[in-house]
């Protein structure tokens, strides 16, 4: 997994509720022979592009200074819906490193941590204020998300703490591989399975 320590950059206010993973990446892009790394151009295509394929200038992702922003600000329930991990790969392909929202879809949240993208949960009032600070600046506003200290620094320098599971924080800071960690408990897994074959033999076909 990719490491994540700290990111500083422009934060795009995509201030809508229930941004679902269908909106982030259309399912056919995951059927077509597009590589994970190649999904960036299709991220949010339904709002970035008009039906004729041209850029929609009203979409914030097509406006300066947000075009190459590494941070998204959003409202409640970001990443709800389908379990498709392609949504995270597409965000990554678009250059997104972290998403700040009041809370996230549970499966999307897990998928982020598997790919070095940090989902940061903050109260909506804080997010709205960061969005206002971004919009009020002439384009030089920057937000910092620091995983080591678990803080977000707003464009005006306000330091806002956030919480993250200690286990996930450690894994992300060090880029740890989940499977390798689990494999180190192989003996325990086998012992559990041996006992279970006696206790619940009907499960073992």
């Amino acid at each position: 997994m990719d490491k994540f320590t700290k990111v500083t950059g422009v934060a795009t206010p995509l201030m809508r509720q229930n941004v679902d993973t269908d909106l982030i990446i259309r399912i056919e892009r995951l059927v077509d022979n597009v590589t994970r790394e190649g999904l960036g151009p299709y991220c949010f295509e339904q709002i970035r592009f008009k039906p004729d394929g041209s850029e929609d200038p009203d979409c914030i992702f097509n406006q300066e200074p947000y075009r190459d922003a590494p941070i998204i600000l959003s409202r409640e329930n970001f990443g709800c819906g389908s379990s498709r991990e392609g949504a995270v790969w597409a965000l990554k392909g678009m250059g997104i490193k972290t998403v700040i929202a009041p809370y996230f879809g549970d499966i999307f949240n897990n998928n982020c941590f598997q790919n070095g993208i940090l989902p940061v949960a903050l109260p909506i009032a804080e997010i709205e204020q960061i969005a206002d600070e971004m919009k009020a600046s002439p384009g030089n506003a920057r937000v910092t998300v620091d995983l080591e200290n678990c803080t977000v620094v707003s464009p005006t320098g306000r330091v806002i703490p956030f919480q993250v599971d200690a286990r996930r924080q450690h894994a992300m800071l060090n880029g740890l591989d989940d499977i390798a960690q689990t494999m180190s408990a192989k003996d325990k897994i086998e012992a559990w399975q041996t006992a279970d074959k006696t206790a619940r033999p009907w499960v073992w076909l």
Partner: peptide, 13 residues
């Protein structure tokens, strides 16, 4: 439901 990375984890372990 799980994502692709978790799926690989379950296949492996």
């Amino acid at each position: 439901g799980i994502g692709s990375s978790e799926l690989v984890h379950v296949i492996a372990t």
